[in-house]
Design a binder for these strands. Structure first.
Lengths: 246, 246
DNA sequence: AAGTGGTCTAGACCACCGT
DNA sequence: CGGTGGTCTAGACCACTTT
């Protein structure tokens, strides 16, 4: 159905056009993470192109981790399993092993006016508010991270109530389940800072202790920024941030 | 010539086999950065495969930034132009612009026994020595970075004399010209540390100032580590390390 | 056995670059 | 103009998964 093989379309390679159609299909078609997509042959007929062309479009979505191929089974919308989280979370312990820290304690959830940096990074309008969640996370060895998470208030209504008593390790799962927000990419800025008295108290360190500050912006499929997360982490015991450029 | 289309070869897709042949061709064939490769049609005939298969092999090398395609002109071995350097160098100034800091001053070049970390990261034998270059680099705004660069002595003979009075901003160019060593990938570990008295003096800061320490290992085409570089950078004036996962 | 993705072929035509 | 890479086709056969 629909199809319409050689419609008006012009400008640009067909596989790029198909790639965008597929993104919209996933976004608007109610495909959740892990959901199966139609088989390649069917998609090729639907778009009226050869299999090779359709595959080239899929290849790019696979490279972007938006779609997964499983031989003999089919195509699937990529899910936020632990593996994906591992790809975004880059702090590694002394033995070189990535280990997701627990969601330890909520320090506060509040809605407030956005600061200049939050407006910039999240692309907010002048008067838009943000929801801020402050929490601690702990590693297996007991080390504590301090995290502040800012979300655009307009898209995360009723955040405190919906989070309730949940303490999800992967907030991105929560965003998807509760708000239909799929994170597909991040961009991080790293700095070294000194622990303030408050930081130090919360993390069990002395004031002035050097901390790695990771400011991470998370993006949706359509490249809109949806989360600004600032993490403070002690990196003096072998723990470090690992960067392996693609 | 040679060719030998359907030789013993088995196990594994052909395009992977061809990809490895191409890597060896570049490594052993004396192709310098920027050198043109034979056209796709010729390579396809040489390996005895269809154009599409050859292109799939090339696609992977292009993705790894080992080969470049230029429409209408041909294939080229990727060069270390400033753009490639920008991809590896990830420190961004306050305005968000990447700017390569100058090679400011040599603090010392010496050959010495390798420490435990150097042996680990560079995969050195027990008794192998390293050449260490210590230098400062300065940004346009005057900020200073402190850098220690360790190389396996066995592969960088006569380093001090060959460097002479050169002050290349891109050491990787120097490695390629003088030693035929092509860097194609890096892996960085980041920590926050406190400036020692010596660091502080060299960088014009007070002791205890928080510094971002970037420990970067550079790899050759065949994945051998060839350089361990430790950089200390002041990140309190808006300067930061930018990480955009592929 | 039927259905899926993975590899491979042997062409075609287009867009771009140099002479 | 001829040569190059870029796109696209319409098939073929293989490897894997499920029924």
């Amino acid at each position: 159905m629909s199809s319409n093989p050689l419609a008006v379309r012009e400008h640009g390679p067909r596989y790029l056009w198909i790639r965008e159609q597929l993104v919209r299909m996933i976004l608007d078609g109610g495909f959740k993470g892990g959901a199966p997509l139609p088989p390649e042959g069917q998609l090729a007929r639907h778009f009226g192109v050869a299999l090779g062309t359709l595959r080239k479009a899929i290849d790019e979505l696979v490279a972007r981790k938006i779609v997964e191929r499983v031989q003999g089974k089919g195509l699937f919308v990529a899910a936020y399993d632990t593996q994906a989280a591992m790809r975004l979370f880059r702090i590694v312990d002394a033995s070189g092993v990535k280990q997701l820290p627990n969601f330890d304690r909520v320090l506060g959830i509040r809605t407030r006016a956005a600061g200049a940096n939050e407006r910039l990074r999240l692309g907010l309008a002048r008067d838009e508010k943000v929801v801020e969640l402050r929490r601690t996370r702990t590693f297996a060895d007991g080390a504590v991270m301090l995290e502040s998470i800012c979300l655009p208030g307009s898209r995360f209504a009723d955040f405190k109530a919906r989070l309730g008593t949940q303490r999800p390790v992967l907030l991105y799962d929560f965003y998807e389940q509760e708000y239909g927000v799929r994170i597909v990419g991040v961009e991080s800025r790293l700095r070294a800072v000194s622990a303030t008295a408050d930081d130090a108290k919360e993390m069990g360190l002395r004031a002035g202790h050097p901390l790695l500050e990771v400011e991470r912006v998370a993006f949706e499929l359509d490249a809109r920024p949806v989360e600004l997360r600032t993490t403070l982490c002690d990196t003096t015991e072998g723990r470090h941030y690992l960067d392996v450029p693609g």
